[in-house]
Design a protein around this nucleic acid. Structure first.
Lengths: 133, 133
DNA sequence: CGTTACATTTACGTTAACGTAAGCTTTTGT
DNA sequence: ACAAAAGCTTACGTTAACGTAAATGTAACG
C-alpha cells in the first residue's frame, strides 16, 4: 500500500503506450518519474498527468500546449504573476474547446443529413442492381 | 456570371491559405482545378471541397481521412459496392465525431472546475502578496 | 520591348511525435 | 553462475503537411 509506484512496463500496459513514448514525455518535461538506481518509477501524479496528456492529444492539442495546461494542475506555491498567466492560458484553451465543440456539433448534423442522402442513393442503386437481374 | 472560376490568388485570399497549400491539395487529389494554359482555375466544386477540407483539419482529421469523406459528396453514379463502402466509412467517422464531442464535453466541465479552483488560488496569492507590503 | 509581377515546376528543408536499431548495464530465472 | 529478459542511453530514421528557394514561363504595364 506504501507502494504506489509503477515501472515503465506496468505504465505501458496500463495506458497502452510504448516505453519510448514515456521516455519522450519525460524528456519534454511532461512526466517526472523518480529513479531507483537507473530505472524509472512513475508516481500517482505521473499517472494523472499521463491521463490528461492522452486526452489532450485526442483533441488535437500539441504536447507543448498540453504542458501548459498541466501546469494548472500543479499550481502549489507559485508566484502570483505566473499563476495569473497560467490561468489566462487555461481560459483561452477553454474558449477554444467550447468553440471546437460547437463547430463539431454543426459538422455532426451536416454529416447526418449527408448520410440520409447517401442511404437514399444506396436504395436507388440497389433497385437498379436488382432490376438488371 | 458564366465565370465561376477563381485563380489561385483569389482562392488564397478567400480561404486564407497559401498557393503551396492549394497545389499540395491538388497533388493529393483533394482538389481538381482545371487548367487555362498553365494556370489553375478553381471551380465552385473546388471551393466547396476546400471549405470541408479546412473544417476537417480543425477536427484533427488527416488529409487522407478527409479525402475519403469528400467522396461522399461526390457520389453520382458510382457502383453499388463502392457506394456502400463509402457510406460505412462515413458512418464510422460520424460515430467517432460524436464520441469525440462527448469526451470534449467532459473535458470542458473538468477544465471549468479547475479554473474555479485556480481563481481561488489567485485570490489567496493576491492576499499574501498584499499582506507582505 | 523591356521589366516588374505573378504562376508553375522541381526539389530540398522543417517540425512534431515518436519508431527503431545498436550497444551497454542490470535484473531475474534456472 | 550464466543466459535470457528488461531497462537505459544515444542517435539516426520516419511520416504528415506544408515552407522555402531556384529556375523558368507568361502576362501586363509604361
Amino acid at each position: 500500500m506504501a507502494d504506489e509506484m509503477m515501472n515503465i512496463r506496468e505504465m505501458c500496459d496500463a495506458f497502452d503506450v510504448t516505453p519510448r513514448t514515456l521516455r519522450f514525455y519525460e524528456a519534454k518535461e511532461l512526466l517526472f518519474p523518480v529513479r531507483e538506481g537507473q530505472k524509472r518509477l512513475f508516481t500517482k501524479r505521473d499517472r494523472a498527468r499521463l491521463k490528461l496528456i492522452l486526452r489532450g492529444k485526442r483533441f488535437g492539442f500539441s504536447l507543448e500546449e498540453i504542458r501548459q495546461l498541466l501546469d494548472l494542475y500543479d499550481m502549489g506555491d507559485q508566484q502570483h504573476t505566473q499563476l495569473v498567466k497560467t490561468y489566462e492560458v487555461a481560459e483561452d484553451r477553454l474558449a477554444s474547446m467550447i468553440s471546437q465543440r460547437d463547430e463539431l456539433n454543426e459538422a455532426i448534423e451536416e454529416l447526418k443529413e449527408q448520410l440520409e442522402w447517401g442511404a437514399k442513393m444506396i436504395a436507388a442503386s440497389k433497385d437498379k442492381h436488382h432490376a438488371a437481374e
